[in-house]
Computed example of a mutant assay.
Amino acid sequence: MSYDTEHVRNVGNGPTMITGLSTFTELLTNTNLADLYIAIRLSPGVTAPEIADQVAVSKKTVYEYLHRLERAGLITETKDDSATRAYNAEDFELTLTIRGIEITITPKLVAVISRSDAYPIINRICDEHGFVTFALAHDLINAHSDGEVTIRQIAALTDLSHGTTYDLLEALYEIHDIGGDGPSPTTYSPADVAEDDLFSELTDNK
């Protein structure tokens, strides 16, 4: 039997135990927790000792984080060949609607947040402009890699300066390994695009 209610959908034979919903949002502010979740996601079946060698926290903190992630339903325990505890990461989407703006938190965004120590521009945008602006800029930069928008258009849509937008673009290109040896998408300086044409260009490209 499946249940679909106002707040809960896709429930099969009864609801799954999920507690500690604050852990979901902490993935966006605690880079060590995010890094541990992503490490498990990239290495299914990884054991706790193996995880401890990959992250920059104490062994005690590793086990604390594993417990929190498991209680939140973000990871599940398995057994390896030696019966040692091993873990797999679960996919998730956490969608919030605030003041009519809908934002969805996914492992892809968490993976970027986990790199914020190496790329301070990520924390700077989240702290100074908010996570919605960061998530919007992230998605627009992905569109930029496909040649759909320019840096100027991203800056206008997110209300970020051109310099800040370019710094974030460089960071995300490295994190997502966009570009490689192929030709880079065309970018434009402020003088290349007339202000009146900005949103019409975006509309025409859809």
Rank of each mutant, 00 (worst) to 15 (best):
T5M: 04
N10M: 13
N13T: 07
N13Y: 10
G14N: 08
M17S: 11
T19N: 11
G20A: 02
L21R: 15
L21T: 09
T25N: 13
T25M: 13
E26D: 11
L27I: 05
T29Q: 12
N30E: 09
A34N: 02
R41S: 07
L42F: 13
S43Y: 11
P44W: 03
D53P: 05
Q54W: 06
K59N: 10
K60F: 09
K60N: 07
Y63A: 01
H67A: 11
L69T: 04
E70P: 04
E70N: 05
A72V: 03
L74N: 01
A86W: 00
E90H: 13
D91K: 10
D91R: 12
L94C: 07
I101W: 12
E102D: 00
I103A: 15
P107N: 04
A111P: 01
S114D: 01
Y119E: 09
P120V: 03
I121A: 00
I121H: 00
D127I: 14
D127E: 14
E128Y: 05
V132E: 14
L136M: 15
L136N: 12
L136I: 15
H144W: 10
D146M: 08
G147W: 00
G147P: 00
E148D: 09
T150S: 15
I151D: 07
Q153V: 00
I154M: 06
I154W: 06
I154V: 15
A155M: 05
T158A: 11
G163R: 11
G163W: 04
T164Q: 08
Y166H: 13
L169K: 08
A171N: 02
I175Q: 08
I175T: 08
I178P: 02
G180S: 06
G180V: 04
D181M: 11
S189E: 12
A191N: 14
A191H: 14
A191P: 05
A194W: 03
A194Q: 13
L198W: 04
S200D: 14
L202S: 06
L202E: 02
T203C: 06
D204Q: 08
D204P: 05
N205V: 11
